[in-house]
Design a protein around this nucleic acid. Structure first.
Length: 793
DNA sequence: CCCGTCGTTATTTTT
DNA sequence: TAACGACGGG
């Protein structure tokens, strides 16, 4: 296609956009924040914008960087942009982490890592903590690993004073430091490093930053509300907005000569640079935030254009380090930001959106927007109250079955729940009723033992310093090389803090080892050397699955897992086969191997082989996993206080739960069903449940009600018809209220009374109520199913 | 080294 | 309740 055709072609795509979308696509000259409500066509806007910049604005596709959070989103974005404009294939459209990996492969030495690094996952992190700090219990190690991850999400190093924000345990910095040392000795990285190391490299190497700033003229970020601090800083550095400490003696003169300024001395140099810089790009002035920092742009040529897209109402990953603050304060961080709201929703019918809007509007910290339905009213969302979780599963099954008889395919349905454990009841019921289902996300393909084994072989071949991979496979299947021998081999390889080849070290050790260990090691090392050699001499004519097969067969692992399959009735061999299949796409070369490992580590969902279409089935999925998805019919289950929201959630965390509900609701295109049970088996006990306060927040009139309406719901929605109270971010469920002495109470059986005492006994909260006619009674409010109410004046 | 039993513990997890 | 990990006997 000629570029002229492309241009005409693009006019067609532009004509499909609504006014705001169009404005967002065409905007230029200052940072842009697009607040895109659920289903408002944000992907369309980003992709069209990429195509538009290339076709209409002559932007070199190589200079466009678009980052997303999931591989799936990146892939979709790329495909859709390329469909509009072929040259978009040359744009960098990646996940944050794959961008980090790409970056680190180029600047490995600056980052202090091996250029053949592989990425350690969370389990590997725990193993490293264990090795770095012996004597920790498994629990302590995994807690430490979790905190290290979180620290890295915030770019906090072991010696940072901010470390107490992560943990005030005085041992934590020591553990973190030891972990880092151990990790660095392997030459590999963890997930957090994929963001934090590029930030450090960029911030500490003006030359590198200059190079990168020069490379990327346009930077776009999708799902910006889920970015963490580290990602924010990466973005700043990429956009050239980052702060460099005033003590910038590492900034050499040559680094800033491109600014065409005189080489005057002292801090004024920077302020002049800053001034000149900002006057050159009038709209992109960076204001000075602190007294201790000077802003230095190392390239004074031109500011990259930055555009982020997100929805503060869909921020649901705080627990993993995501900072809603990033999107809430974007306009402050990037002055002169243009804000465009996309509020027209093309996905859901109006009645569904109304529920979503009512619920989320209870949140206080939000930028605020109101979704406008582009479609008709549609069906009234159905809220069903059931007795037990078994009834709930049965109800869902019968809904789906009835619809199926009328020709609605199973795949139109999704069952959403808060926790993975909730899937069990549905599985049992569906199995029983022969309803096909697919569970999304619970057991990750690449987390399976057999898969990790083969990947460990590949990782060790790629990087013979990979201690974790080495330990995983050196004695699998068992060949007499126990933990002690492994420690000695690692110690032997570790010279002056630098890890050498573990294979060489294993060879060396085998000379002095016992007979059994010697035999085992000889087998292992000769196999490894054979693999290394065949990789070295590989021409790239074969694909990587040839190599994977070779390893599986000759290492004894296939045999080992075959035996396991027979014993435990598992499908490990089948999974291995699948892994081998997925390697077909990669070349049998060193580069192909690294590529393969990167793709696997950075996308933990198995890529479906072509032609292997998903059968018609119901989707069972956690609410978190639904982001970005849509289904014609959605059932959100377990809307009970304690489950959703979880009991301990308050304030900001409660708001996040509410957003999660919002995300769930807005997945539905045509029909929305909500279920809530009066009792539920939890941890082996039957517990009586209250309806989720979120239900009342939507108002009684939003729902078509089925089943026994619990008193708490009726009460909460009776006040003013729709459960709305002025300036109330407080949940309306009485359970959320403060049970304090003096509060007036109404009880089904005992009538009116007043709280005379509150206490916590055996970690249960107990209240004593003096009733007008029945004397004093004690209650556990937590377990009162709607029979105990606070009387409001 | 493997397997059974007992005890412990129960969110969400794009990468 | 159930699932998983730790531990000890064969």
């Amino acid at each position: 296609m000629s570029s002229e055709e492309n241009e005409n072609n693009l006019d067609y795509y532009l004509s499909l956009l609504n006014e705001e979308q169009n404005e967002a696509v065409r905007h230029e000259g200052s940072p842009l924040l697009i607040l895109a409500g659920a289903g408002s066509g944000k992907t369309r806007v980003i992709t069209t914008k990429i195509a538009y910049l290339i076709a209409k604005k002559n932007i070199n596709p190589f200079s466009i960087l678009a980052v997303t959070f999931t591989k799936k989103a990146a892939k979709e974005m790329q495909e859709r942009a390329v469909a509009m404009e072929e040259r978009a294939a040359n744009a960098q459209i990646r996940t944050f982490h794959s961008f980090g990996a790409w970056f680190l492969r180029q600047f490995a030495s600056e980052a202090g890592i091996d250029k053949n690094f592989t990425v350690y996952d969370d389990d590997d992190m725990i193993t490293i903590v264990n090795k770095a700090v012996p004597g920790l219990t498994k629990q302590q190690a995994s807690l430490a690993a979790k905190r290290i991850s979180l620290a890295k999400d915030y770019c906090i190093t072991p010696d940072s004073k901010d470390i107490i924000e992560i943990s005030n345990d005085k041992d934590f910095p020591i553990i973190y430091e030891a972990y880092q040392t151990r990790l660095r000795s392997t030459g590999n990285v963890d997930f957090g490093d994929l963001i934090m190391l590029p930030v450090q490299v960029l911030e500490q190497n003006p030359n590198v930053q200059k190079q990168i700033n020069y490379r990327f003229n346009v930077i776009m970020v999708d799902e910006y509300q889920d970015s963490n601090m580290a990602q924010f800083r990466l973005l700043q550095a990429l956009a050239g907005f980052n702060d460099t400490p005033a003590d910038t003696n590492h900034v050499s003169i040559s680094d800033i000569t491109s600014s065409a300024l005189d080489e005057s001395e002292g801090p004024e140099k920077f302020s002049i640079l800053r001034q000149t810089d900002s006057s050159d790009t009038a709209s992109n002035t960076k204001h000075s935030q602190g007294t201790d920092f000077e802003q230095v742009r190392t390239t004074a040529l031109k500011m990259p254009y930055i555009c982020v897209v997100g929805d503060d109402d869909q921020s649901i990953y705080k627990f993993r380090g995501a900072e809603v603050q990033n999107i809430l304060s974007f306009q402050k961080q990037f002055p002169n930001t243009k804000l465009i709201r996309l509020e027209k929703n093309y996905r859901s019918t109006a009645r569904i959106l109304q529920v979503a809007d009512k619920v989320v509007s209870k949140n206080e910290s939000r930028l605020g927007k109101t979704l406008v339905a582009a479609r008709g009213d549609g069906k009234q969302p159905v809220l069903t109250f059931l007795d037990t979780q078994d009834d709930e599963a049965e109800f869902c099954a019968s809904l789906i079955k009835k619809a199926h008889l009328k020709g609605v395919p199973y795949q139109d349905w999704a069952i959403l729940y808060r926790t993975n454990a909730q899937s069990l009841g549905f599985e049992t019921e569906f199995l029983h009723q022969k309803i096909p289902y697919t569970i999304v996300g619970s057991l990750k393909f690449y987390d399976r033992e057999e898969i990790k084994d083969i990947l460990a072989f590949l990782a060790l071949i790629a990087n013979p310093r990979d201690e974790i991979a080495f330990r995983r496979i050196v004695n699998k299947p068992a060949r007499g090389i126990g933990g002690v021998a492994q420690d000695k081999i690692v110690a032997l390889a570790l010279q002056d803090g630098v890890m050498g080849s573990l294979i060489k070290s294993a060879e060396k050790y085998s000379e002095t080892a016992s007979k059994k260990a010697k035999e085992g090691l000889t087998f292992f090392t000769s196999q490894m050397n054979d693999y290394l050699q065949s990789l070295e001499s590989a021409t790239g004519e074969d694909n990587l699955s040839v190599f994977v097969e070779k390893i599986m067969n000759s290492s004894g692992l296939l045999e080992y897992h075959k035996t396991q399959d027979e014993i435990a009735d598992t499908q490990k061999v089948l999974n291995l086969q699948e892994l081998s299949n997925s390697a077909v796409l990669y070349k049998f070369t060193q580069e192909g191997l690294l590529d393969f490992l990167d793709h696997i580590e950075l996308d933990r969902t198995l890529e479906k082989a072509d032609g292997q279409e998903e059968a018609d089935s119901v989707t069972l999925i956690t609410l978190h996993n639904t982001k970005g998805l849509e289904f014609p019919r959605v059932i959100i289950t377990g809307l009970e206080y304690g489950i959703f929201p979880r009991q301990e959630k308050q304030n900001a965390e409660l708001e996040e739960e509410r957003r999660l509900f919002y995300v769930g609701i807005t997945r539905a295109k045509d029909e929305l069903y909500i279920t809530s049970c009066a009792q539920r088996r939890l941890y082996g006990h039957i517990q009586f449940m209250e309806p989720s306060p979120f239900l009342a927040e939507a108002g009684k009139d939003s729902w078509r009600l089925l089943g026994k309406v619990p008193r708490a719901f009726a009460y909460a929605t009776s006040k003013d018809g729709d459960g709305t109270e002025e300036n109330s971010s407080q949940p309306t469920n009485p359970l959320f209220a403060k049970w304090s002495v003096g509060t007036r109470i109404y009880h089904d059986e005992f009538g009116y009374g007043q709280i005379v005492r509150t206490e916590t006994k055996d970690s249960e909260f107990v209240i004593s109520v003096s009733f007008e006619n029945s004397g004093i009674k004690k209650f556990l409010p937590e377990y009162q199913s709607g029979s105990l109410l606070i009387v409001k004046d």
